[in-house]
């Protein structure tokens, strides 16, 4: 078995008042055991809905379709809510963006940590508690045993997110999806949590999808990167490929937005990408980035395919590879 998680041509559609929102438009990726895929993109480009679609946790009004959605060779696309509940938390789990609201205020940390393990593995409560304590210690929580009887409101945001991470690891899933797990936290805590996630993933050998809008974060953990824009991937490849030889104008623009220690001179201007993301209602006509791209031409009116340009490095652009390589994004 080659791929642990395999997603092909994933679409999400949500009927809204003004028409049909298409926030995820034909996304494909594969994930091997132990691999980390980073999905990067501006907020609102459909990252969260992509991960929720894989987990089967989309809002009721949303519709999902995919040519393939397989976890360890098992087709997930037609499972009922009950069947999916046997997989979630057990084989595949998720960490959310909002640590403050993601824990149930009415139950103790201990209860919420252990209930998934008890449900999936049928272990005794005391055994589940021991595992919860050891995982809380792993995510850097001191006096772990004394946290179990506490309630979420007694914990800070950073602690709550650590609890959420420990919770997602309880059943030792094969795949973990982390949707901007550090966005809501202070910068210093962000760094700690990031380091910890990376260590745990290596230690437990899980595959991970790490979602972020922050390329600085990506550099530290990604094996593979997918750059997402307006509901679709515009560039995918190995981490070194994306960082050392970015092709898509959008990727280059994003990279120009982050300072590089030692390279970016003090006081020099950081880039930003002018313009706004196109409306995703009724789909996107042509290349989604053309209204913001300095290299727009007539051919951009029809959407280009995501095509492989070098071993494992793909880009969705009408320009050919040598043209792309010669582009230098000017800080705006």
């Amino acid at each position: 078995m080659e791929h642990l998680l395999s997603v092909e041509n994933l679409h999400v559609e949500i009927p809204v008042g003004a028409g049909l929102l298409q926030p995820v438009r034909g996304i494909s990726f594969d994930l091997k055991k132990g691999e980390t895929l980073c999905i990067v993109g501006e907020s609102g480009c459909g990252k969260s809905l992509t991960s929720l679609a894989v987990m089967g946790l989309l809002p009721k009004s949303a519709r999902r379709s995919a040519d393939r959605l397989e976890l360890a060779g098992k087709d997930l696309s037609n499972l009922s809510e009950r069947e999916m509940s046997g997989i979630r938390g057990n084989d595949m789990s998720m960490i959310f963006q909002e640590p403050m609201t993601s824990l149930n205020p009415a139950y103790t940390i201990g209860d919420q940590l252990t209930e998934g393990l008890i449900r999936h593995k049928g272990v005794q409560r005391s055994e589940a508690k021991n595992r919860a304590i050891s995982l809380l210690e792993k995510v850097g929580i001191t006096a772990a045993a004394s946290r179990l009887p506490q309630f979420p409101h007694q914990l800070s945001g950073g602690l709550r997110q650590r609890v959420m991470i420990a919770m997602s690891l309880m059943c030792a899933p094969d795949v973990i999806i982390a949707d901007e797990p550090t966005t809501a936290l202070d910068v210093t805590i962000q760094a700690q949590i990031l380091r910890m996630v990376k260590e745990l993933q290596a230690e437990l050998g899980m595959a991970m999808i790490f979602i972020t809008h922050d390329l600085g974060v990506v550099a530290r953990i990604a094996d593979k990167i997918a750059v997402m824009y307006a509901g679709a991937f515009v560039e995918t490849g190995a981490a070194e490929q994306i960082f050392n030889a970015p092709m898509h104008p959008y990727t280059k623009g994003l990279l120009s937005c982050i300072p590089v220690p030692g390279k970016t001179e003090c006081g020099s201007r950081l880039g930003s990408i002018p313009g706004v993301v196109p409306s995703l209602i009724g789909g996107v006509q042509g290349c989604g980035f053309r209204s913001r791209c300095p290299y727009t031409q007539e051919a951009c009116a029809s959407e280009p395919e995501l095509t492989e340009r070098a071993g494992g490095h793909a880009c969705r652009c009408v320009l050919d590879t040598s043209e792309l390589n010669s582009i230098i994004w000017e800080a705006a």
């Binding site: 987990m55 946790l57 809510e81 009950r82 509940s85 046997g86 997989i87 979630r88 938390g89 057990n90 789990s93 998720m94 959310f96 909002e98 609201t101 993601s102 824990l103 149930n104 205020p105 139950y107 919420q112 209930e115 998934g116 449900r119 999936h120 959420m164 919770m167 997602s168």
Partner: peptide, 22 residues
């Protein structure tokens, strides 16, 4: 609609228990 209900579902808690416990 609360986030913690989504968390409970993400843990694989059975639908009935999500409804009546959480």
């Amino acid at each position: 609609r609360a986030d913690y209900i989504r968390t409970a579902r993400a843990k694989g808690i059975r639908p009935g228990k999500v409804l009546f416990k959480h």
